[in-house]
């Protein structure tokens, strides 16, 4: 559930827009490079974007008695790294802001930052960390998707608490309030997203071994990832 149109004061709206813009610009460059160098990955890119489309349209009931929806950004972050997910997430947010009055144009910067930047990076970091310690692929995928989903809504809560600190209890009081609305609601949904991402990854392992090996998700026979490691070192 994104911050609704007009619900961030102009200064905050602009600041989050400025914070998100470089990530999206960098993402567009990574995306065009990926498509130019590996035209065969266009299909899987489309599938990753489609996964985000489906999941962020699924409003699910939660234990708090309210509804929210998953983000679907963990999968793309694992497959194509977070910069590309910044673009796919922004497309989804734009679709919802323009056609569904869900989220908004003035809050797009803040929503992009939480769902398309912070979530994918947090999920990807967890994924890399777990894989480094030889945690099985599907376990790492589950926690990456779980963290990408949950951290998105923690960031949303922080964004709102910064804009609307509680008159009595200040920033922390407001953070508790927004956190109980967004983050607690999101916990079971993040579990659902983790499970759904594992299902899609299992189907990908069955159907797209070559692609996953090229992207460094599956290991080659020598036990080294093909493309990801040198790139990560070069950064």
């Amino acid at each position: 559930m994104h911050i609704a149109e007009g619900f961030l004061p102009p200064a905050h709206a602009i600041a989050w827009g400025v914070a998100s813009a470089p990530f999206v610009v960098h993402g567009v460059r990574s995306l065009t490079r990926e498509v130019r160098e590996h035209p065969e990955s266009t299909l899987l890119l489309g599938a990753s974007g489609a996964f985000t489309f489906v999941l962020s349209a699924l409003k699910l009931p939660s234990v708090t008695g309210s509804c929210s929806h998953p983000t679907g950004t963990g999968l793309g972050a694992i497959l194509f790294r977070p910069p590309i997910m910044a673009v796919l997430g922004t497309i989804t947010l734009l679709f919802q802001a323009l056609l569904l009055a869900h989220g908004g144009l003035t809050t797009l910067g803040a929503n992009v930052f939480s769902m398309a930047v912070a979530g994918p990076w947090a999920g990807y970091a967890v994924y890399r960390l777990l894989r480094r310690y030889d945690v099985p692929l599907m376990v790492a995928v589950f926690f990456a998707a779980f963290v990408a989903d949950l951290s998105t809504y923690c960031v949303t809560s922080v964004q709102l608490a910064l804009a609307f600190p509680d008159p009595g209890s200040g920033f922390l009081g407001a953070l508790g309030k927004f956190g109980s609305i967004f983050a607690v609601t999101q916990i079971p949904l993040a579990v659902s997203e983790g499970l759904l991402t594992v299902i899609v990854m299992r189907l990908l392992v069955q159907s797209s071994k070559g692609e996953l090996t090229r992207l460094g998700v599956l290991l080659t026979r020598s036990g080294k990832t093909t493309s990801d490691e040198p790139e990560a070192v070069a950064r």
Partner: peptide
């Protein structure tokens, strides 16, 4: 019951 979390956030604001 089961309203959207975004609507609840608007109320909180």
């Amino acid at each position: 019951p089961f309203a959207g979390a975004d609507a609840e956030a608007e109320t909180a604001i």
